[in-house]
Design a binder for these strands. Structure first.
Lengths: 146, 146
DNA sequence: TCTTTACCTCAAGTTAACTTGAACTCGTAT
DNA sequence: ATACGAGTTCAAGTTAACTTGAGGTAAAGA
């Protein structure tokens, strides 16, 4: 393990293509850490760039920053393998559905039916992706029944 | 085409499992339409449920409501096939990346390496999904250079 | 030395997609 | 007749994930 390069926030920003404001925000949220300061200025180890790539991947997968934080540095010391496995399963579901949507779009782009809602092929796709479509919408704070 | 059943908002809510507030919101945004009123009460044709399923699919695919609106009822009369095809391509890209993430998670859930950032397999996956990871973040209103 | 330039903090604003609350109107069951 | 449940409007609040702005500091180059 060679001592990694140390960079200031501007360089990290350039390498990751993330605005500095985002990097500060991520640090505040605990997603990344700076290794120290030079005066006021944050100093980052180069490996933060990799971590940021991971974070971005997580975001593509549409995990929230909190979920990502949970996966990267869980409560204890090491990663929660069970959680990861569950997330992978969730993702797999999502991929199935996305594939259905993609096929639906693909088809709709060439289909002659007036309305896609009238097209039997499209309807079939709808059913296909339909499992779980109308489920678990995000909730706000739940009321406690007094 | 038999005359479809006509329902009030509560029934639509039950069938789609969407809160009535969401249905009103969608109507306001032009994503769905009521076929009329009975006094104050909105009346919906049963086919709205199918449309809502489409909308939910679109959301799973992480299109914004505006994009979905664009795909369902575009500017003119009929659907913009080119747009759909483009969206399908975008989706396909996203599916690739999600698959990479899923594999990454799957692997991480069994990998022995101390830190996943140190695991070569994981790093490889990172690179794989990496194309486009650090790209096109959402922007707010852009400043005009005066 | 001076000035640019990059950095800092902290509070407040932004956006999408909804939800919540208050105050009101109906149709229907009792 | 009346009370209840389900609907309505409209304004304001919520959440995540950032961004923007004001006002200040400090390292590096001319």
């Amino acid at each position: 393990m060679k001592p990694h390069e140390i960079m200031d926030i501007g360089k990290v920003s350039k390498m990751s293509n993330l605005p500095v404001s985002t990097l500060r925000y991520y640090e505040e949220k605990g997603l990344i850490q700076s290794v120290g300061r030079n005066g006021l200025r944050r100093l980052f180890d180069a490996n933060v760039v990799e971590r940021l790539a991971l974070i971005s991947l997580g975001q593509i997968a549409r995990f929230s920053l909190d979920e990502i934080a949970g996966m990267l540095s869980p409560s204890g010391s090491n990663i929660d393998r069970k959680l990861l496995s569950e997330k992978a399963d969730e993702l797999d579901q999502k991929i199935q559905q996305l594939s259905a949507v993609r096929d639906g779009l693909r088809h709709a782009s060439v289909c002659k039916a007036r309305s896609h809602l009238e097209c039997p092929k499209f309807k079939r796709l709808l059913k296909l992706g339909n499992k779980g479509v109308f489920r678990k919408r995000k909730q706000f704070i739940e009321k406690q029944p007094k």
